[in-house]
Structures are given as structure tokens and as C-alpha cells.
């Protein structure tokens, strides 16, 4: 693999993600005002002192957008990493152990997936107290069902290959088989899946926040900012659209990278590996 083989669309995606992450890390340096400081009139237009205008309480929209990147990326990434670890561990365990464990995990997973994610989240969040880590945990657990399914399928795909059988015949232990034979061959599709899950987490978190069930004010977060400013829409004030556009842009960027990763995976699969 060399850098020149990465297509333009993927570069755009990588650049977008990099900018967002830089914003998140250096938020206090980049943002001209504080996250929660009321600095002017409400819903001031863009330009002048305020790059993107002010929000429904008179806070600087640009500053909140930069700080919001922090919250959004952190929560979405934490949820994705957690859901991925959970899903991968359980799915590989199911695939390698097989039998009863596999049946138990798989049936329970089917049950979890029979309820639409958003509805499930609404039901659960109606009961649980509002904490950041609870939100992350709920998102992670719900999303891990998807990871479990794909992880199990991928692992089973590889586990029936003859080189895995050959390792078994050699007398290799389960750990060697999982980490040295199966895992290296599943990295590419799993990486793409990680990107997909991340994009989904961003959208899901924003949706929850938009519905008032995600990150609680006054902390800035993109979905919540849309909710805060939505009443301005009827007056032709576009303050709600700016964080919305930020969410959309980040999700598009992630998807562009994922699209490239998936194409790369499928072209690597070529050849006679279908036996």
C-alpha cells in the first residue's frame, strides 16, 4: 500500500476527520470564547465579532461548535471502541467455542436486534438516570449487537479456511489460531466496520441529543445545539443548521474513508479463495 493509491475522496474524508479531531483536542486554543459564556445578543447573524453568530442564549456559535466537536467525538468514539471490543470478544468467543455458547449468544443477539436501536434506547433511557457514562454504555451495548453479527460472520468465514484447519492439525492452541491465523485476515473488513460504526455513533448520539436524551446542557454538543436553536428556524435564523451541517460533514467524511476501505477489502479478496 502506498499513499498514492489512496483516492481523492478518501483524502477528503481523512482531512475532514483530522480537522475535527484537531478542533476537539485544541478547543480552548481555537475557540475565541468560552463554551458557556454568554457574550452577546441572541441569534446575532454571522460575521463581525462572532464568526458564525450567536445562539439562542447569546453564546458564540463557533466556540460552541469547536467545544461541541470535543464532546461529540469523545462520546461517539468511546461508545464505538466499547461496542467494538464487546462485540468482537463475544463474537470471536462464539465462533471459536461454537455449540451451546454460540447458540446462546446468537439467540440473545437476535432478540436485541429485534427492537429498533432508537426505540430500544428511548425505552432504556426513560428508566436510567442521566449520566454521560450511562449514555456511552447504552450506545455501546446497543451497537455491539451489530458488531457481534458481523464479527461472528467474518470469524466463521475465516475459521473454515484450510489454513486454520492446518494450524489445528499442527496442534496449535486457540489463542494462536485466533490472534495469528484468524485476526490478521479479518482486519480489513473489521476496520471498515469500525468506521461504519463510528459514523453511526455520531449520528445516533446527535439524534439522542436532539431528542433531549443525550448530552445534557449546558455542555455543548452538536445534536444538542440543533435542539437549542431549532426555534429560530421559523424566523429564518439558520443557527440550528450550522451544527447540523457539522454532523453531516463529519459523517460524510467517515463514510468516504469507509467506502475506500471496503473497496480495498474486496479487491484484496480476488483470486481463487472461494473454495
Amino acid at each position: 500500500m502506498n499513499l498514492r493509491s489512496i483516492p481523492l475522496s478518501a483524502w477528503v474524508g481523512i482531512a475532514g476527520i483530522a480537522i475535527t479531531i484537531l478542533c476537539a483536542i485544541f478547543a480552548p486554543v481555537i475557540a475565541p470564547y468560552g463554551e458557556r459564556d454568554v457574550v452577546g445578543d441572541i441569534w446575532l447573524p454571522a460575521g463581525g465579532d462572532f464568526l458564525l453568530g450567536t445562539d439562542n442564549l447569546g453564546r458564540d456559535l463557533f466556540s460552541r461548535l469547536v467545544y461541541g466537536a470535543r464532546t461529540t467525538i469523545f462520546v461517539a468514539l468511546a461508545a464505538t471502541v466499547l461496542s467494538f471490543s464487546l462485540g468482537m470478544i463475544l463474537s470471536f468467543a462464539a465462533a471459536v467455542m461454537g455449540g451451546f455458547v454460540d447458540q446462546l449468544f446468537s439467540r440473545f443477539n437476535d432478540l436485541m436486534m429485534a427492537i429498533p436501536t432508537l426505540i430500544f434506547a428511548l425505552v432504556v433511557l426513560a428508566v436510567l438516570p442521566q449520566h454521560l457514562w450511562i449514555l456511552i454504555l447504552v450506545m455501546a451495548v446497543l451497537d455491539s449487537t451489530r458488531v457481534f453479527r458481523i464479527g461472528r460472520a467474518v470469524a466463521l468465514d475465516v475459521a473454515v479456511m484450510e489454513f486454520v484447519e492446518a494450524a489445528r492439525l499442527r496442534g496449535e492452541g486457540s489463542l494462536w489460531i485466533i490472534f495469528r491465523e484468524i485476526l490478521p485476515n479479518t482486519l480489513s473488513p473489521l476496520l471498515a466496520e469500525f468506521g461504519l460504526r463510528f459514523a453511526f455513533s455520531i449520528l445516533f448520539l446527535s439524534t439522542l441529543s436532539f431528542l433531549g436524551l443525550g448530552i445534557q446542557p449546558p455542555a455543548a454538543d452538536w445534536g444538542g445545539m440543533v435542539k437549542d436553536n431549532k426555534d429560530g428556524i421559523i424566523f429564518g435564523i439558520s443557527a440550528a443548521l450550522i451544527p447540523g451541517a457539522a454532523i453531516a460533514t463529519l459523517a460524510i467524511c467517515v463514510n468516504l474513508v469507509v467506502d475506500w476501505l471496503m473497496k480495498r477489502t474486496s479487491s484484496l479478496k480476488g483470486g481463487r479463495g472461494d473454495a
Partner: peptide
């Protein structure tokens, strides 16, 4: 990649 509420608004 567009959230529903963004399209809506």
C-alpha cells in the same frame, strides 16, 4: 450520512 433532523430543518 445526513441526520434526519438536519434534512428536516
Amino acid at each position: 450520512s445526513l441526520p434526519e433532523f438536519f434534512i428536516g430543518y
